[in-house]
Simulated scan of single mutants.
Amino acid sequence: MSRLLRLAGRPAVWVSGAFLLVLGALPYSAGLFGALFPDLPRPLYSRASFLDLALSHAALVGIATLVVVGVGIGVGIFVTRPVGRDFAGPIDTLTAVGQTFPPTAVLALAVPAMGYGGAPTVMALIVYGLLPVVSATIAGLNAVPRAPMQAADGIGLSPGGRLLKVELPLAAPVILSGVRTSVVLNIGTATIGSTVGALTLGSPIIEGLSGSNPAYVIQGAVLVGLFAVAADLWLDELERALT
């Protein structure tokens, strides 16, 4: 019971509750936005349900995150092994370029090859989200103290066993901080996927901006903001637990 009470007092729970509350209340808020913006003929976004937008947005970010985590941690492990140390510089440059490359440009390049919809959006999120995970993995593994690694060698662990049983567990909090940064960035970045036909919480924002409808912009922005903050807080809880 005490654990449940402590959990209920966490900011992550409150923000998640606020997100779900807003998500459930928005379909019934036409009167509110009509009063706030009386000049708008359609004050409530209705091309798709807000629940569908949220689920699609979460799915795009989730798919991209799975790829980013798998590739980013794999690359970080590779360049911290003796066989891959020579590739550390070029890989760092490539991931940095991916971070600075505008997601809109990635979308523009991906659409001719992948078509419209979620696929180019996922590609843009992967490119944009790799750097934090790769950098955090490299930093975390390089920061592992030598004493536990020498102890692992002393008890006869193989290099793979030392990596799985010593290095990765000790580096996990640092790696998770990179994953956390990547996820929060991609929750915000996924909104522009609506410009190429992806169904996201950015759909009301894009339509509102193009149609001079501030009510749509507010509806999408509030949901995206609460979603990003809730994800950040939950990952912070996990990071604290690992630490």
Rank of each mutant, 00 (worst) to 15 (best):
S158P: 06
E207K: 12
S203V: 15
G208K: 11
N186C: 15
I187H: 04
G178T: 01
L157W: 09
L163N: 05
V217Q: 08
P173G: 14
D153K: 03
G154Y: 10
T191W: 09
A198T: 11
I175H: 07
N213D: 00
G202W: 05
S158G: 10
I155L: 14
L199F: 01
T191Q: 03
Q150M: 13
G188A: 02
Y216C: 02
G188R: 04
L201S: 04
P169Q: 06
K165N: 12
G208V: 13
S182I: 07
N186K: 05
G211W: 00
L176M: 13
V174D: 00
E207M: 02
G160R: 14
G154F: 02
L176G: 01
I206D: 12
I192N: 03
S203D: 14
M149L: 15
L164F: 14
L168C: 06
S210M: 13
L176N: 07
V166F: 02
L170S: 04
N186H: 07
P173D: 15
L199P: 00
V183R: 06
I175E: 07
G208M: 13
G156T: 08
P169W: 12
P159C: 07
L170H: 00
G160W: 15
T191M: 06
S203P: 01
G178D: 06
P173Y: 07
S158N: 08
S182P: 08
V183Q: 07
G202Y: 11
Y216E: 10
P214F: 09
P204D: 03
A190I: 10
V166D: 05
P214K: 01
I206F: 13
Y216D: 11
L163P: 06
I205T: 04
G197M: 03
A171F: 05
P148S: 12
P204E: 03
G208P: 10
L163T: 07
V217M: 11
S158C: 08
I187Q: 03
S177Y: 02
I187A: 02
G211D: 09
I205Y: 00
S158Q: 10
I205G: 01
K165F: 13
N213W: 00
